[in-house]
Structures are given as structure tokens and as C-alpha cells.
């Protein structure tokens, strides 16, 4: 059985599951040289993301060591991170409409 989840870059604040994970499950993660433990607040489907720490509203979400979007709601450590709580900062014609 391989790892439960992967953290791609040590500056990331999200991890990606490598199999279907259950709410309440303890996930062990290698981040650089350290091993961290996160308790999941939701079921996390294979290849989906969860938070490694609390992320404030509007804070950058980091994966691959790069910004993949902003939190559109406060996110708790262990929570599922996806379209319901992060939004893109790019390709946002809808925001251009709001400005008009």
C-alpha cells in the first residue's frame, strides 16, 4: 500500500490524496524532512486536495510551490479544498463585468 497523500513542495498549504480517504482519518505526510499529521474533516476522494493548515479568507492557496488560487472561504486544517472554497485569480472575465 503506497502513501495516503502527497505534498508536492514544502511551501504548499495543501496536500493531494493518493487514494480515497475518510473523514476522521489521520494522514501522515512527509514535508521536506519532517513528518506531519493531519486529521481529515471530510472524505477526500482520490486525487483531491485537503488543507495542511488553517487558510484565511483571501489567502493564497499554494501547490507545486506556486499560487493555484485564493480561499473564497476560511478553510480549516484537514478540510477538503476545492471549487467550493477556493477561486481562480486568472481568466476571470466575470470580475471584469463587475467592475463595469
Amino acid at each position: 500500500m503506497g502513501k495516503q497523500a502527497i505534498v508536492v513542495h514544502e511551501s504548499d498549504n495543501v496536500a493531494t490524496s493518493l487514494r480515497d480517504l475518510k473523514k476522521g482519518e489521520e494522514v501522515l505526510l512527509e514535508i521536506g524532512d519532517t513528518e506531519n499529521k493531519v486529521v481529515l474533516l471530510n472524505d477526500i476522494p482520490f486525487a483531491h486536495k485537503f488543507a495542511l493548515k488553517n487558510i484565511d479568507l483571501g489567502e493564497n492557496v499554494i501547490k507545486y510551490g506556486e499560487v493555484i488560487g485564493k480561499a473564497s472561504k476560511p478553510i480549516k486544517m484537514g478540510e477538503h479544498v476545492h471549487v467550493h472554497n477556493i477561486e481562480s485569480t486568472r481568466g476571470r472575465g466575470d470580475l471584469e463585468v463587475d467592475k463595469r
Partner: peptide, 15 residues
């Protein structure tokens, strides 16, 4: 893509 876990265009692009 979204069902497969990709949340934003930035995440898709970086991958």
C-alpha cells in the same frame, strides 16, 4: 477536470 480534483486554471496549468 474538476471532478478529478483540479480546482482552478492555475492548478491545471502548473500540472
Amino acid at each position: 477536470n474538476i471532478e478529478g480534483g483540479i480546482s482552478t486554471i492555475e492548478e491545471k496549468s502548473l500540472g
